[in-house]
Design a binder for these strands. Structure first.
Lengths: 199, 199, 199, 199
DNA sequence: AATGAATGAGAATTCATTCAT
DNA sequence: CATGAATGAATTCTCATTCAT
């Protein structure tokens, strides 16, 4: 027997799941709240009990998807790092590649995220997905050096994520002016300064 | 006496100008085509003579604004570069700062661009704004080295622009999770690898 | 063949007529804009071409009905006045009775007016119904004396109309605390000061 | 220890107070039952325990406010009457001015009353506010003469109140076609017949 | 090319009311 | 008595697009 509190979350979750499916299959604009509640099997009023409007719902979905995409990529990257003894920069590059791979694998999710990949760095996401914090702390640690404070490292990480999300959306979805294949090297090794790559 | 072609462009331009003003003052969603044609002083049918729909119009506006913002920043950066004998990386960093400064100065334009700063790199923009080509060629030249081909340099430039646009939109408009002041150093010196900044 | 300008008014009029019928038969709240446009045989968008919302429509209808009710009463009162050589106060009292008679005859119109009888004194009504002006000038003339300026007379007239409308709505529709029969003498001879009624 | 009856009234009163505040601050249409119960700190179901619907609630509030406004004005008028030895007509005129003064002082209450000032004359109001009865009896006495029965006097009083409420709402809230300043003389001396003021 | 009245499908959102707890 | 999550019908209003002039 589900408790009252569980029941409450149940309806909310059913709305989130239904909306995610519709947003991915069709698109956000082609999905009416009506469709969402019908698929979720709840009344229309129930929707407005849990979400302010369609865009509040969308924000929550984007937060969830980006957080899960990021944490999954982190897990894969970490396994590989341990197996192959990668150094800090190599680990970050591998993580970058991993995220890009997932985005290009699922164009629909990429379209849904629509340049808001860094949503998973928002305070709400941190709170809702404690695993995010663990990964970010680990990655921040990797980047921290004598002349790069913890705070600087965090910001770099955030900017990196935002950049990947933004660049990949265009590259994967429209391939203009560059397709994702052309940009992967530029992205993953972005901060390797041109002049320093040789020496 | 204006030629027929000029007259045609006159109406189109009046629509573009009216829409830009409305999109900036209110927002894209709060602006109806009706408002645009009223302010432009043309009939509704005329709008559909020149634009497919509201988003076609928006694309053209974003292209124009990003192109003018980019070219202006380039001009400023180049003057300074000549005056102060900056090296390649310094020039790019200065350009980055210049673009960011313009974005933060005009939040409304930043909101309008909405993470599509790299629109000025699109083939149509290049065609419509020949000055863009000149600047991009110059900048590409700056970044080209033995181990960075011309094509690689162009891509880096594109990714840099996309990154600035994307990161700055969030930082300037919502200041979450980081405000623009906190991110300027991270952005402008992004590709200076952490470990190499000291030595 | 109707001109374009006539056609424009035609649709507007059809909406006004349809709405009046529905507002009277059911009520304002029980009438949806949908019902109005269906009965008028126009598209929903056409409604919003001519009216801001349901209450703009209602205001226009109330203005029309009160103006026609007032002008008709005036005509009747004037005929009688000429036939029977009534003095000024008697004429006003007769007009009062005439208005009340029409209101009680048509409870539905009374309900529609809903205490806004003086709407026919609004500037817009004056403009739309030139006959209103003629009557008001005439009545004002009746009430003007050495110690009652033209302006004072106009105000008295306005207050009288407002009072009739307000008192009668309650008396006719709910009969609480007094029915219209009980209040007619009080209303029509309202400004005959109690002490002066005998002498 | 509060009795059960007092407790019952407590919740009812809290709803009435909360609704009054919201109805005054926003408006009746902009206030949802939801807002009312939230502010009152009771459950939604509780509302329906004490009130049939929003308009039942509104009626009770209007009754309360008009009754208190009327009784307060009466008290003030009576004190003044005793101090200054006013005659009957002067007393009524002073009361009229007093009511108008209070209405114009508090536009929000005037908007809430919305032409239903005579609600304080309803049987329910009389029952709920015994003080109303005392005042009305006194005022009726003032107006009763040889040729004006007690019943006539009561009706005149009622019509007067209704008129003030109706005229003042428009004059205070919209000032069209006349503002309250222009109408005060017309209202307070309304039943002084124009023709009799001179002779 | 230019117009602008007319369209009408479709969307979001509200809110009074119920009822199982 | 009291609760408050759930309901879902109903309603207003928008707006891109067309087409006869």
């Amino acid at each position: 027997m589900p408790t009252a509190a569980e029941n409450k979350h149940l309806k909310q979750l059913r709305i989130l799941d239904a909306a995610t499916r519709l947003f991915l299959d069709r698109s956000v604009t082609d999905t009416a709240i009506d469709d969402v509640v019908k698929l979720a099997g709840v009344a229309k009023g129930t929707f407005y009990l849990y979400f302010r409007d369609k865009y509040d719902l969308l924000d929550q979905i984007v937060m969830r998807r980006t957080a899960s995409l990021f944490t999954e990529s982190c897990r894969t990257a970490r396994e590989r790092a341990e197996a192959e003894q990668l150094d800090a920069v190599e680990q970050i590059e591998f993580l970058t590649d991993e995220i890009i791979a997932r985005l290009r694998e699922d164009r629909k999710v990429t379209a849904l995220i629509d340049k808001r990949f860094s949503a998973c760095f928002s305070p709400q996401a941190m709170e809702a997905y404690p695993e995010m914090q663990t990964h970010i702390e680990y990655l921040t640690g990797l980047l921290t050096t004598d002349d790069c404070t913890v705070e600087d490292a965090r910001k770099r990480l955030y900017v990196l994520a935002d950049m990947i999300g933004c660049v990949c959306c265009d590259a994967i979805l429209s391939a203009r002016p560059y397709g994702i294949d052309e940009l992967i090297p530029t992205c993953s090794r972005f901060w390797r300064r041109p002049s320093t790559t040789t020496s």
